[in-house]
Computed example of a mutant assay.
Amino acid sequence: MPPLDADERATAEAWLDFYRATLALKCQGLDDAQLRIAAEPSTLTLLGLLQHMAEVERNWFRRVLAGEQAPPIYDPAADTAGHDGGFDLTDDSSYDKAVAIWHDEIAQARRNCAARELDDTSPFLDGRVSLRWIYTHMIAEYARHCGHADLLRERIDGTTGV
């Protein structure tokens, strides 16, 4: 539970961590076959969501915030200016690999944010974007995908709730 009476940064970081933990919880206790189950007609899977969120972490906290030339994780030929990708699974996609990469990207995101203030900006599109905006966007991105994860998990084994 994020703190109820913290400063702006602590609140933003806590909500982001809350949704990261929620996505991890939605995958907990499932095997690779279950993590590959899609809610037809969609091809969206829990494993694909994990991979996607690693790409999203990389995009916003490494490419945009830190200005790194970090290639896509799951499709090295993809255009990094487009969507973050990661949704598609390959034969060698696995939970162990995906969660390790996701955790690495989260750790790098925390390192890249540690020395910055919420008002610090980085070049983005034709302007600049603040760390505050990136945190807000990431909270919304995770919240949206945690809703997808809720539906997928319920379809897989009937589990509901956080």
Score class of each variant (00 low, 15 high):
Ser94Ile: 03
Gly147Ile: 06
Trp102Glu: 05
Ile134Asp: 06
Val56Ser: 13
Ser94Glu: 04
Arg128Lys: 13
Met1Pro: 10
Leu30Tyr: 01
Leu44Glu: 03
Ala39Lys: 10
Leu89Tyr: 02
Pro76Trp: 08
His137Ala: 11
Asp104Phe: 01
Ala114Phe: 02
Ala33Gln: 12
Ile156Asp: 01
Tyr74Met: 06
Asp120Thr: 05
Ala39Asn: 12
Asp91Thr: 11
Met53Glu: 06
Leu65Met: 13
His83Ile: 10
Phe18Lys: 05
Arg110Phe: 00
Gly82Gln: 13
Ala140Cys: 09
Ile139Arg: 02
Arg144Trp: 05
Phe61Lys: 11
Asn112Thr: 09
Lys97Gln: 13
Thr45Pro: 05
Trp102Leu: 15
Ala14Tyr: 06
Gly82Phe: 06
Asp17Gly: 09
Leu65Tyr: 00
Arg128Glu: 15
Thr160Asn: 05
Glu13Gln: 15
Tyr135Gln: 09
Leu35Tyr: 05
His83Ala: 12
Leu25Pro: 00
Ser122Ile: 07
Leu23Arg: 09
Ser93Lys: 06
Ile139Trp: 01
Met1Trp: 03
Val56Trp: 03
Met138Thr: 11
Asp7Met: 07
Leu47Met: 12
Asp88Ile: 10
Ile101Tyr: 04
Asp88Leu: 15
Ala6Lys: 12
Ala33Thr: 10
Asp120Trp: 07
Ala39Arg: 14
Ala6Trp: 01
His52Phe: 08
Arg58Trp: 01
Asp84Pro: 09
Asn59Ser: 14
Leu46Gly: 02
Ala12Ser: 14
Arg128Gly: 02
Ile106Ala: 12
Leu151Asp: 01
